[in-house]
Design a protein around this nucleic acid. Structure first.
Ligand SMILES: [Zn+2]
Ligand SMILES: [Zn+2]
Ligand SMILES: [Zn+2]
Ligand SMILES: [Zn+2]
Lengths: 160, 160
DNA sequence: GTCATAATGTTATTTTATAACATTTCCGCT
DNA sequence: AGCGGAAATGTTATAAAATAACATTATGAC
C-alpha cells in the first residue's frame, strides 16, 4: 500500500495522535496567516476540540466541551467558529450525522470523501478521488460546486 | 445522449409530470404488493405529496401539505411514513438539506447520486454510477453499506 | 486616538426529530 | 362471525440542531 493510501486510512490505523494534532494546528496557523484571516482564540479552541476527537462531534458536544472549562457559552459562538473553520477548509461537516470533524489534509480540499464506521464511529477522509457522477453532471450541463460523499459501513477492525 | 442519460436528467428536462407521477405510483403499489408490505393510505398520501413536488421537501413541509386538508396531523405521522418509504427505496433523504424526495427509479436503489441545483432547487437522481472511493474503501478493508453522494451546483437552465 | 469593521457575547426563537404511551386497524385463526 | 396478537396510527410532550436579532468588545487602518 502506498503512503498516500496509508494516510487516507489514518483514522483506522495506530498513530501518535498528539503528534498529528500538533502538526495540524501548525498547518492551520500557517494557512490562516497566508490567507490573512484570523484564527482567533475561540476558533482555535474549537479546532483543538475537534482535533482531539477521533470521531465527528455534534455542535452541542463541542459546546459542552467548551462549557466544561468556561461557563455560559451559547450555541452561536460554536456555530460561528465552525462556519469559519469550514470556510477555511479546516473542518468538514458530516451531513449524514449533523456533525463536524477536523480536516486531515487542510489545503487540499477539492473534494473529500468520508468512510464512516457504524461501530467505532471513526471517520477516514479520502481526498481527490474522481467522481464519475461529476463527469456525467458536466455532460448534462450541470456546474458542480461542492460534492458530499459519505460512505457508511464497517471498518476493517470492526468487521471481526 | 442515450435514453438512460436523458432519464437521469429528468428533473431538469421538460416532461409530463402527471404521467410520471402516475407511473411511479403504480410501480410503488406493485413493489409493495410483491414484497408483502403495506402501502397504507397514510404512506401513499406522503408519497403522493412528494411525487407532486419537483423539489425535495422538508418533513414539516409535507406535514403542512397534510394539514391543509386534514387538521392536527402531528410530526410522528409524517416521520413514520417517511421511514417506511425510505426502507422500501421509494423515497430518498437528501442529507445536506434535511429533506426528502421521491425516488425516480424505485427498485434499482444500489447507490443513487443527486445533482442539486442551488437556484431552482430541482434534483436529478443518477443511478448506478461506480464510486472510486468504494473501491479504495474495499482495499482498506472497509465494508461499505450505504453511500451518500450529493453534488450541489447549478443546472444547465440556471447557468444562463 | 478615532472610527469603521470584524468578532464575540447574549437572549430568544425556529426548525428538525424522537420518546413514550394510547388507540385503532388489520389479519390469521377458531 | 368473534377472538387476539401484531402492526399501524394517533397523541402529547420533549429533545436536538440551528439561527435571528441585537448588544458589546476587540482589531487594525488612518
Ligand atoms: Zn479535508
Ligand atoms: Zn470501526
Ligand atoms: Zn432512487
Ligand atoms: Zn436550476
Amino acid at each position: 500500500m502506498t503512503d498516500s493510501r496509508k494516510d487516507n486510512a489514518l483514522a483506522f490505523t495506530r498513530h501518535d495522535h498528539a503528534d498529528c494534532q500538533q502538526h495540524l494546528l501548525q498547518t492551520a496557523q500557517q494557512l490562516c496567516a497566508k490567507r490573512s484571516v484570523r484564527l482567533t482564540p475561540r476558533r482555535l479552541q474549537v479546532l483543538e476540540i475537534l482535533l482531539r476527537s477521533h470521531q465527528p462531534m455534534g455542535a452541542y458536544e463541542v459546546l459542552q466541551a467548551m462549557n466544561d472549562i468556561e461557563h455560559n457559552i451559547a450555541p452561536p459562538i460554536v456555530y460561528r467558529a465552525l462556519d469559519f473553520l469550514q470556510q477555511q477548509g479546516l473542518v468538514h461537516r458530516i451531513e449524514s450525522q449533523n456533525a463536524f470533524i477536523a480536516c486531515i489534509h487542510p489545503g487540499h480540499h477539492t473534494t473529500a470523501q468520508f468512510l464512516i464506521c457504524a461501530k467505532c464511529h471513526r471517520v477516514a477522509e479520502l481526498d481527490d478521488q474522481q467522481l464519475p457522477a461529476m463527469q456525467l453532471a458536466q455532460d448534462l450541463g450541470f456546474k458542480a460546486e461542492h460534492a458530499v460523499v459519505e460512505i457508511n459501513g464497517l471498518c476493517a477492525a470492526c468487521r471481526e
